[in-house]
Amino acid sequence: MPISDCDKMVDIATTLPGLKLKNPTILAAGILGETGASLENVAKAGAGAVVTKSIGIEPREGHGNPTFVETEHGIINAMGLPNPGIDNYKDEVESIIGTNIPVIGSIFGADAQEFEILAVEMEKFGVSALELNLSCPHAKGYGAILGHDKEKVLEITKVVKGAVKVPVYVKLSPNVSNIAEIACAVEDAEGDGIVAINTISAMAIDIDMALPILSNAIGGLSGPGIKPIGLRCIYEIKAETELPVIGVGGILSGNDAIEYIMAGASAVQIGSGVYYKGIGIFSKVCQQIQEFMDAHSYKTIKEMVGIAQKG
């Protein structure tokens, strides 16, 4: 069959507040993001944007090993938010800022004041947007413990919004009974967008040792097994808010990404996919998205965003 002119017009670029992406694939927080050179590699491999490792005020070792274990349908990590601290991170992030793709700075703090300090610093480094980690399920006093409380989400988002000019995205945890309610708190605080989902609280037990494998016992599940949950979360958030959403959780292929887009995501993040498919996953997913759009006569990503929403 001859390729028609329309097919050539498929455009996989996408826009979100403050972010113009050449394609909808973004590196998820905490995968290959501790060092600047690794982020550069992901940029070169074709990602539309990269998110940094979640960075806190002080250097932090994270949990002891084992911090990683694979299960049948995904991986469980309990890294425990290791990071060099905001001051040391400057050198990492500066090497990639101003190169060809947007850099999104992920930060985590114990309270609104810490988030504010971190947000201001990250903005000074030159990031295009911020991602507030209110969702890590395995670091005591941080992440999900705040993100489960809609008042805290409202307060932290408001404080950060008041302190910076760059758009502020809030990354949500699926480990709540009503994720849309938390998303509404972000909207009320005039956050610019939602990232969902972080990992799902999980564990693996070694029956020979009769012990949890991870040193922290509990970690976060990611990878193929969580895609249906991520999709449901995006769908619920989109039904309740107008905020743009970045979908993440178990994306390994272009079709997975399109499911997220149809549920309401304007872009997607890929984390565990780097483990399953290697760093080539970004260009591969883009190619598959393009092929799907070609075959189904979609010309823009926007046309597909949320079209699976009913009512």
Partner: peptide, 18 residues
Amino acid sequence: YMKCGVGICDSCAIDGFH
């Protein structure tokens, strides 16, 4: 320093190599 051992956590990174 190694953590995940499978090339995703970036702990053992050296100039973009793991």
